Computed example of a mutant assay.
Amino acid sequence: MNILFVCTGNTCRSPMAEAILKDKNEGFDVQSAGVFAGEGHPLSAQAREVMEEEDVETDHHSQPVTPELLEWADLILTMTERHKQALAMQQSGYEEKLFTLKEYVLISDEKWERLKSLYSRVEEKRNCLSQEHEGDIGDKWREEAREELEEIEEIEASLPDVNIMDPFGADIDIYRKTYRELLEYIELLIGKTDEKR
């Protein structure tokens, strides 16, 4: 299984997640990238220090998210809901495999299927309306998809916090907390993907 972890600059959270999963040696192919990443930047100094403390090897250089990476991935796991939304807006066609790390491991498949179905119906209604009005629909689509949007809001309100803490610019203790949070959810990820393999 090919897994792509995504954060903002690809110098803290997503490369830490990549290194942790690679260290677990569970038969995954793993890469990481950033929604706004530059090319070739090293892992942040604090992230590197924490990885060394934990004896997790990493030789990381940042890379931006590309269509090729998204195509390569069987599963795209972002660090926050904002990263997920940014990817969905920038690149369409990957919704079926795009989740935050935490929501992927914490939310039941039934709830996901319902959400995906609702999102698809909203998108269908928006596309149909756009074709009928030659693209000029403003917020008309929201009224057209009101029931679906209300149910989406209700389901999403019941979901847990799906964001991984951002340590950028913080002291080393925050990086350690982020490492422990990533480790917890990556262990859950391994368990969930083992069930599906």
Rank of each mutant, 00 (worst) to 15 (best):
E113D: 11
S158I: 10
M16G: 06
K125E: 02
A47T: 01
L118R: 04
K97S: 03
E49D: 15
R180H: 12
I20F: 12
E150R: 10
R48M: 11
S14W: 07
S32R: 03
R121V: 11
N10Q: 02
M16D: 04
V50A: 06
D161G: 00
T100N: 00
N25Y: 06
N127P: 00
H41W: 08
E134P: 08
L77C: 08
R197D: 12
L70Q: 04
M51A: 03
G38E: 15
V105D: 09
D173N: 12
K84S: 13
A47M: 07
E26S: 10
P167Q: 08
A88L: 13
L149Y: 04
T80L: 04
E132Y: 01
C12Q: 03
L183T: 10
R180W: 12
D173R: 09
E113M: 03
L101E: 01
L69R: 12
K177Y: 06
G40R: 11
Y94I: 14
L188N: 00
R126T: 07
L118C: 00
E151Q: 13
E96S: 12
G34A: 02
Q91C: 14
G40T: 11
T58G: 07
A19N: 09
A145T: 05
D74K: 07
M165R: 15
T193F: 02
L77S: 11
G38D: 13
E53A: 08
E143I: 04
L106E: 14
L149T: 09
T100L: 02
G138N: 11
V105Y: 11
N163H: 03
I3N: 07
Y119Q: 09
G40H: 12
C12H: 05
T66G: 10
D194F: 06
I20V: 14
I164S: 02
L98P: 06
N127L: 04
E39C: 02
V105F: 14
V122D: 00
M1H: 07
E26C: 15
D139E: 15
G135H: 06
A33Y: 00
G34R: 05
A73I: 03
T100Y: 01
S108V: 08
R121S: 11
V162F: 00
K84A: 08
Y104R: 01
G40M: 10
R121H: 06
R126F: 04
M16Q: 03
C7R: 06
Y175V: 05
I164N: 02
R142W: 01
L21M: 09
V65G: 05
K22V: 01
L183Q: 14
F36C: 13
L101K: 05
L118M: 02
G169P: 05
E18V: 11
V105K: 10
E184P: 05
D194C: 12
E95H: 03
G38C: 09
L43F: 09
R176Q: 04
S158H: 12
R121E: 14
L77G: 08
K140R: 15
Y185R: 03
N25G: 07
M1D: 01
D74Y: 06
I174F: 02
P15V: 07
Y104T: 01
Y104G: 00
A88E: 08
Q131Y: 11
